[in-house]
């Protein structure tokens, strides 16, 4: 197991390098001179040239890339031009909001998706199965911002049960914080819930067809134990992977959700940065999210390996 983790960690290095390269080149491909954008159209050519030297834009591409990479490894993602603040510290300032939102949404998605998927598989081709799969398909198909707006229309404007936008504050009590999180979490969770439901259902159906399920029944095991001891354990292994990958999707979905609900998280920061052409902030955030995604994937792989005796054993036991 240790060897497996080590190997996976080493595999991260080229991925990371590639991510850095892609982000760097993408930023270079954006039309327009950053110096010109920053200084405005009235800047004199001399000012622009001086500013370009200051930003290092006059050097060759490989040299720029090298200094970018070395900066990243020193934890220097540059300074945001609109916030006049270090990019990394800005990210860490906003991260808790996004993390809370993502974790709430993921918990919601897993806690509803997995049971719904199991239930649908047990009622295969019955009415409740149809109902659940339709619900899940709706979740997969409907865009997040639309769900968010509908939720606001219904629960905030029509019923007036929940506050619509912004963060709650702890001074007003835990309910204030929670009530501000309910709608965005649900809007963000809906899609993942649909995906997890569908995946759990098909994985369960697949496993329930296996002969070892029939065998377990013929051994005299009661249905509930057949489910718990043989079916679920096998069916949920691939679900773990999907759940892990959803965390990445949730980070992307957070961009939309935070915009709709005006939550000051990473997503909102990103949208603002893009709108106002804060190149270094966009670049830093994309890198941060990519790295986060890589490590989530690593964690998923390790958990998957731990759950799967095939992989566990082939790397020399735990």
């Amino acid at each position: 197991m240790g060897r497996f983790i080590l190997r996976r960690c080493i595999q991260i290095v080229p991925t990371l390098f590639f991510v850095l390269l892609v982000i760097f080149l993408l930023m270079k491909m954006i039309p327009g001179d950053p110096a010109l954008v920053l200084l405005g159209p009235e800047a004199s050519p001399e000012d622009v040239a001086r500013f370009r030297v200051e930003l290092g834009l006059d050097r060759s591409l490989p040299a720029q890339f090298a200094s970018y990479v070395s900066g990243v490894f020193r934890g220097d993602l540059g300074r945001s031009l609109i916030y006049r603040q270090d990019v990394l510290s800005l990210i860490f300032e906003r991260l808790p909001v996004t993390m809370t939102l993502s974790v709430c949404a993921l918990s919601l998605a897993v806690l509803s998706g997995v049971p719904l998927g199991i239930w649908a598989s047990l009622r295969h081709n019955r009415f409740s199965d149809l109902l659940i799969t339709t619900f899940a398909l709706t979740g997969v198909s409907v865009p997040i911002f639309w769900v968010g707006m509908m939720l606001i229309v219904f629960f905030v404007l029509t019923l007036g049960w929940l506050p619509s936008v912004g963060l709650g504050s702890w001074e007003k009590g835990a309910w204030d914080v929670a009530s501000h999180l309910i709608l965005p979490s649900f809007a963000l969770a809906f899609q993942s819930m649909g995906i997890i439901t569908r995946f759990t259902r098909s994985s369960m159906l697949e496993v329930m067809r296996q002969d070892y399920i029939r065998t377990a029944r013929s051994k005299g095991l009661r249905d509930r134990l057949v489910l718990g001891r043989h079916a679920l354990r096998n069916a949920l292994v691939p679900v773990v992977t999907v759940v892990g990958l959803q965390l990445g999707h949730l980070l992307a979905g957070a961009v939309l959700t935070e915009s709709v609900f005006a939550l000051p998280g990473l997503g909102k920061l990103m949208v603002d940065a893009i709108m106002r052409r804060d190149y270094l902030l966009v670049q830093g955030e994309v890198l941060f999210i990519a790295v986060l995604y890589i490590f989530v994937n690593l964690a998923v792989d390790v958990i998957y390996a731990f759950l799967n005796p095939k992989i566990r054993k082939s790397y020399g036991g735990a």
Partner: peptide
Amino acid sequence: QDPESSLDPR
């Protein structure tokens, strides 16, 4: 028929 699926892999 299929010894692959008649044993629980876990």
